[in-house]
Write a protein that binds this DNA or RNA. Structure first.
Lengths: 299, 299
DNA sequence: CATGTCCTTGTAGGTTGCCTTCATGGATGC
DNA sequence: GCATCCATGAAGGCAACCTACAAGGACATG
């Protein structure tokens, strides 16, 4: 029961291919393949992987040992955490992947909070679908994304999750827009104006659908775009409105945000982590900074 | 945080010397010393061991990591246990160290129960003081000893313990001894006869002291011997009495046992195990056989 | 106080295990 | 059917680990 073998199977369970494991561990596929063979031999010759298409997949036996590899990774991470605590300071590099709009809100505060620690943050911005976030934890210590269903995104059941921020979705308009005089706009107001929307199926679009359902009339979506900064610029230069998240939208750039009366649309900015990675003191430090930054934004 | 380094420190915490670790792991002391050095380097140069007499001992930092090594060993043992369960059968060798008198009572039943399993039992008989039993778990999976203070022997606080049997201490006498006609003997009866005792300080001697305290008269101890078989033989060939454990004493060899009225002296036959070793399916199988054998003896 | 023993540690050198390179073969998609 | 992707195998290099040997410090014993 060699820890290295368990770790190899854990990686293979996460990455689904010998080549991917090889890249992640800075080895050649051949080396990984050989290690797999010796692992199989040492463990009594029970097949641990089986061909699947042109790749491989774990057998039941392999999955069982991969689970053991997860336990092992977690235990080692706990020891590491106690060791870091003993040394008195969190240290090391934390790899963070974050949704750009969430990062824009949280990261400045996070970085200033980490400035006087030995933790170095290696940040990547990723713009992918909600369902893909759990897959990102394989290569990053913390993944910050958004969830429209609740504080725990889909597919993160076996992961550690932390809700950082609940960000309401508002209606953005030009600062001198006719609706800007009201504290909150109604669904009725909104069907009278043209919209900049997002592609069909994007979560922001749910608010448009809710407005249409309430009024019974479709709204006029003149463009379907993805980038919020672009939408801001267009909104600022027209009479059209758009759905934009409250805290991520640049204030004072000719844009005004107004909540929709009677609607409680919001997105959750959440962090998700692998259980073993969540044990590391440096990771917990960054996570705490993210939480604090979230509180700062709301308060 | 290399598992090998943690394991090394765990061994060192258990065995207290580089040489002992080297013997246990089939290496030379030089190899162990070098591994220690690289472990120290990899972990940031914090001293993990310090000279102590002509040996070494762990620093606080070293102890912390050794504890981590224990956690690690336990996690790996849990994985091994699940693996064994998946394969459907406990297998492997279990190293058992047992007090001879306890082994004589339990082992026949244990071996017959294990006969149709793939578990092989490697048994050693050891005759040492109660306080030394916990030290034996370093080299054996299960240590069976006795405890006179209760079902958990001293020094076994961080170990897994299992009470197998509570064995009353009786008075042994020739089968046609004058006291053999009574169902139980009294302290008064006993001071009238000569005794074969055990060396001063041995636990069996507590019963003699209790008898003397009750009556107020010292008993006449004519010999102080250790081996129960020898005492049996002498008792069978004389009018003298001796303290012997109830189940460990050969029945029908011209010897009769009688309890002492009003006294509840007994020894506990207990098994003690290291937490990580206790996870192994084969070990648990043997432990269960020991428990069953204990119940068999009482029932 | 000298001597012997026990333990650790360092150096030099050998061996083993792991990895890379290169080549082969199967599965998939165009 | 061809190109591509992926896994696997054989051969060889290299580094890590270990053994052998020697030296030095601590303790017990005469």
């Amino acid at each position: 029961m060699d820890p290295r073998h368990l770790d190899l199977l854990r990686e293979l369970a996460d990455r689904h291919s010998v080549t991917a494991v090889a890249e992640a561990t800075h080895r050649t596929p051949s080396a990984v393949s050989q290690q797999l063979r010796t692992a199989q031999r040492d463990l009594g010759g029970i097949p641990l992987v089986e061909p699947h298409g042109r790749s491989v997949r774990l057998t039941e036996a392999g999955k069982l040992l991969a689970d053991g590899g997860r336990d092992l990774a977690r235990t080692i991470a706990q020891v590491q955490a106690r060791w870091d605590a003993y040394l008195g300071s969190a240290s090391g590099t934390v790899r963070l992947a974050a949704l750009p709009s969430a990062a824009a809100v949280l990261l400045p505060e996070v970085l200033s909070r980490l400035a006087d620690t030995a933790v170095s943050l290696e940040c990547t911005d990723v713009d992918i679908a909600e369902s893909e976030y759990p897959g990102m934890v394989v290569d990053h210590d913390i993944v910050v994304g958004h969830s429209f269903t609740g504080p725990v995104p889909a597919g993160a059941e076996h992961l550690v999750t932390a809700a950082l921020l609940r960000e309401p979705l508002d209606i953005a308009m030009r600062a001198d827009h006719v609706l800007a005089t009201k504290a909150r706009v109604t669904a009725q107001d909104l069907v009278r104006h043209e919209w900049y929307g997002v592609p069909l199926g994007y979560p922001f679009d749910d608010l448009r659908i809710a407005v249409e359902t309430t009024v019974g009339t479709p709204v006029r979506v003149v463009q379907r775009l993805r980038d919020n900064r672009l939408i801001e610029a267009l909104v600022a230069a027209s009479d059209r409105v758009a759905v934009l998240p409250r805290y991520s939208t640049t204030p004072g750039a000719g844009i005004t945000l107004r909540p929709v009366h009677g609607m409680d649309a919001a997105r959750w900015i959440v962090a998700i982590l692998r259980p073993d990675r969540a044990e590391r003191l440096a990771v917990r430090t960054v996570l705490e900074a993210l939480r604090a930054a979230g509180r700062e934004v709301v308060g």
